[in-house]
Design a protein around this nucleic acid. Structure first.
Lengths: 233, 233
DNA sequence: TTATAACTATGTTTTACAGCACAAAAATAA
DNA sequence: TTATTTTTGTGCTGTAAAACATAGTTATAA
């Protein structure tokens, strides 16, 4: 048995879904071109308008994909957790990034040149199918999100965000505390509201004993209630 | 030269982007399973919750993909023109439709069983790549739309919709009249506003000599102005 | 340590937009 | 034709949420 490089062992163990689809010869080329980068909290990973050159894979930490809109307001489009892939869509569309990505907390990102990824997609059907599924899932989520963000009221939007955070990043050992500590501003940008209203609505939820808040630690006490609020008013 | 069936000639001539990617043997199977259906104005093509079984291709007419939200309000997610493909995303995600589709005006739709499409995608790289590009484009548009619909004000949203309609369906011989006659309600559902506000804002644009309105005929007089309104206020 | 900045909290004011009511006009049916 | 429904157009009212103001609180830097 040959000794594996650290990079290759990461590919094999962390990115197994992707790695398992490759032929032996492909694995060699991919491993050779695989790079790892660290990003500090709040550091920008890529910006709108830049040329998409890398397929990225979040190995550790949390990342937000967002878009700056009118009047300095920003909208969080989706959240990335380990191990998820991002940064590839714009390349497939042959256009510059229309979104930006930043680390919510310090993050480790593995990356591969998109040119190489494309090359392998064109040869390897399993890999192509992998991206078809990824894109289909993201598109479904994006379409649903459009309606949620435009039609629900503030309370419903925030309730939904809290549930999304739980589904996405899970909870701590107590089974209640959200495993992500977000600034109120990010919570607002995720829920399409102003920071003041995010704070205000969190307070309301606390008063109604639906959640407890301690700084950025949020516990979901009454999930059933939150679901109802998310669904209706 | 063998005589071609009508169906096969439609595949070859209308759906050439798709058809050209197929091998000869594939063409035979696809042609055998290709069906054509007509839909009347306002007729529903598929509904939310249904199982996605067909890849559809709009051959004639105009189709809206929409999603019913809170309190009977409906949001138009995207518009389909000939020759565009739709109805396949949910199948790739192995989930029921999360959107619905209906004919805005009488439409002709060609369809193929998704099971067959998947089978060919798994064998044919060109076909897989075709869907990767389709999905990537739609996802980019959807993400941009989310921000536009949530952050822009009424005037900006309506201005944007009018420009989208022009880009999507083009104009008549005069170079001004939009080649689509939509109900005010649809225009509102496209722009995330109430019907009254769509009507009101159209009136404002008319008074400001940005457009002219004659029933459902809309002429864009001052496109530059419309772009400015769409971008800022 | 103190200073400075960033974040959180809450009260007040303003406004964009929904909701409703009611006509008029147009389309569709009888 | 007339009757009935659907669509379009406007005015009025209420309210959800933004905008603004101000202060306390927690990080970060000097």
């Amino acid at each position: 048995m040959v000794k594996k490089s650290t990079l290759e062992s990461i590919l094999q163990e962390e990115m197994s879904d992707f790695w398992a689809l490759l032929e032996n010869e492909e694995k060699r080329v991919i491993a050779e071109n695989f790079k790892i980068q660290n990003f500090k909290k709040n550091e920008i990973i890529y910006s709108e308008g830049e040329e998409p050159l890398q397929l990225m894979c979040l190995l550790k930490g949390k990342v937000k994909i967002y878009k700056d809109g009118v009047g300095g307001r920003s909208q969080i489009i989706r959240l990335i957790r380990p191990v998820q892939y991002f940064g590839y869509r714009a390349y497939f569309s042959r256009e510059p990034y229309v979104t930006a990505a930043a680390a919510i907390e310090s993050a480790t990102v593995g990356s591969l040149p998109m040119s190489l990824v494309e090359e392998h997609i064109r040869k390897n059907n399993g890999l192509a199918w992998f991206f078809i599924k990824e894109l289909s899932n993201d598109l479904g989520i994006s379409d649903a999100r459009t309606v949620n963000l435009t039609q629900k009221h503030i309370r419903g939007r925030l309730a939904e965000s809290l549930l999304v955070l739980k589904e996405n990043y899970g909870v701590e050992e107590d089974g209640l505390t959200l495993n992500i500590y977000m600034a109120r501003e990010d919570l607002a940008n995720l829920s399409n509201m102003t920071t003041s209203n995010a704070i205000r609505t969190l307070s309301s939820f606390t008063n109604e004993k639906i959640i407890t808040v301690d700084g950025r630690r949020i516990q979901i006490i009454d999930e059933e209630r939150l679901r109802k609020i998310s669904k209706f008013g």
